[in-house]
Design a protein around this nucleic acid. Structure first.
Lengths: 145, 145
DNA sequence: GTCGATATTTAGAATTATTCTAAATAAAGA
DNA sequence: TCTTTATTTAGAATAATTCTAAATATCGAC
């Protein structure tokens, strides 16, 4: 069904499924928000705010840049999106994979791949004064293909 | 001699030692550059450009912000500094620890600790199409003490 | 349904870290 | 010293994001 590392996200949701996910998360499902979710929760792969705006310009005319930012923040706070920031770009990247995972950056193409936690074993052996709550891993390199 | 995780950097260099390190690295040792190195290679712990400028304002009047940025870039290209960017701040952070290592962020204080590679074992088990050239790890949590 | 309160959207201004520009100064080589 | 080249500088420009305040839409009580 779903190959690992495939590029296109297959978990597409219908507008009404999106609506109920928003409602469940305590977010009013306005037309703008549903539109943005259609893109960021389904079609898109690690989009930036700029890419969301570009998509909106084609698919939901008149949607403002401020609404793009407002909505992305709202989705992050609601737990439906994760915000990522990497050293290679100043732009924030949004990830609809909300379960814990790591990332691989293809340095040639800039493409970003999700890695499941069991693909990268991380075992901190720190002094007990350090209480680890969160682990972020970014592997960089190239992808043969 | 040097405890792990101590905050103050002890590896202080005299101006003439700094001068020779710059020359060795192919960087002309101007007065401004030596001054900035006194701070970023010795005293400072993960400073931002802003902090370097603030230090310069006290210790080397008239040094411009442009020179701060020019010099930091120069030192990074010369391999004497590493540039870090983390999700919790938009500012670039400079690290005078140029050997491979990871980081721990104290989420309460914002303090950043270097972790030696043997304090965090990372073993990627990726498909062979992924060629890993670089591993970045950021642990987040709290520090007792 | 209508009305008033609240929430959302919007365009454009403001902010922030950084980079760029072009002129002034300093240093190096003949 | 003179000339070329490198460095420094102040201030303008840039780019992503956030803020502001007005306009619009939505919700709940009646």
């Amino acid at each position: 069904m779903s190959k690992t590392h495939e590029k296109a996200r297959t978990h597409c949701l219908s507008p009404s499924e999106i609506e109920s996910r928003l409602t469940q998360a305590g977010v009013q499902p306005t037309a703008q928000r549903i539109a943005i979710c259609r893109f960021v929760l389904c079609e898109a792969d690690h989009p930036t705010a700029e890419e969301v705006k570009a998509w909106a310009d084609k698919n939901f005319p008149k949607l403002s840049l401020a609404t793009v930012y407002n909505t992305l923040h709202l989705l992050v706070n609601a737990g439906l999106l994760k915000e990522l920031k990497f050293p290679h770009s100043e732009k924030v990247i949004y990830d609809n994979n909300i379960s814990p995972h790591y990332h691989f950056l293809d340095e040639k193409t800039g493409e970003l791949f999700d890695l499941s936690p069991d693909e990268v074993e991380v075992s901190p052996k720190l002094k007990s004064i350090f209480q680890v709550k969160n682990v972020e891993v970014l592997l960089k390199g190239s992808v043969r293909g």
